[in-house]
């Protein structure tokens, strides 16, 4: 299973696009927001946590269809399904690879983009904490969506339609942590809820993803 993870990471780095694309998208979204709402720093600092969370979520969404599509097209998925590794493990590794190549860079880049949106001083810690806690859930839920739509040609739009409603609770709690952190309020409750969602999806959703993948491989 480690071999699979290494392969996916290697593919992401070598294929060029996969690794930087989400990050670049995140940057562009954040740069576009001030153009849309105006440069006033008071307003920007108020909406910064939410904008950063939505930007990260959309950047995550952008790369979801790559999780299984390439392996589906070249037949690797068939071969993996006959391998001695359980499909549940394979989807977990896929989700982990997606998080390492997309989620983690977003978490690390978020503070820099926070500066652009004049995020208040005390907000940085909680912004990073909330993204670090929440993006794994985005990857795992996205892997489920990608597994659902793997057999569908040009399923990208459908994938977004399926995954976005599933992202609602994660986004609400994640952005709430970041917002409360920026405004200097207590963040423990939403942070715990966010952690609950992340660990819950980590524990349960791979089973659903694997089941869905098996159906699609039939």
């Amino acid at each position: 299973m480690i071999a699979l993870l290494v392969r996916d990471l290697r593919l992401a780095v070598r294929a060029g696009g996969g690794f930087g694309l989400g990050l670049a998208f995140f940057l562009i979204v954040v740069v576009l927001v001030p153009f849309g709402v105006g440069p006033e720093s008071g307003l920007l600092s108020k909406i910064a946590p939410g904008v950063l969370w939505i930007g990260a979520l959309l950047a995550c969404l952008l790369s979801l269809d790559r999780i299984f599509a390439l392996d589906w097209e070249d037949g690797s998925l068939d071969l993996l399904a006959t391998a001695p590794v359980p499909l549940e493990g394979i989807v977990s590794m896929k989700a982990l690879a997606h998080w390492l190549t997309t989620g983690l860079p977003l978490v690390l880049a978020a503070p820099a983009l926070g500066v652009l949106l004049s995020l208040p001083q005390q907000g940085y810690v909680w912004l990073v904490a909330s993204l670090a806690m929440g993006t794994p859930a985005l990857s795992v839920i996205g892997t489920f969506g990608a597994a659902l739509t793997v057999g569908i040609k040009r399923g990208g739009l459908l994938l977004s339609l399926l995954v976005l409603p599933l992202y609602v609770p994660t986004l609400i709690f994640g952005a709430e942590v970041a917002r409360r952190g920026a405004e200097g309020f207590e963040v423990m409750t939403p942070l715990l809820m966010l952690g609950g969602i992340t660990f819950g999806t980590l524990a349960l959703l791979p089973f659903a993803s694997a089941a869905v993948l098996r159906i699609n491989l039939r």
């Binding site: 409603p165 599933l166 609602v168 609770p169 089941a211």
Partner: peptide, 20 residues
């Protein structure tokens, strides 16, 4: 399967929205 998973997330969303 989407309906099953969606149901869980729909309930989660309900509570999240209440909190929000």
């Amino acid at each position: 399967i989407l309906c099953l998973v969606g149901s869980v997330f729909a309930v989660l969303s309900r509570y999240a929205v209440n909190f929000w």
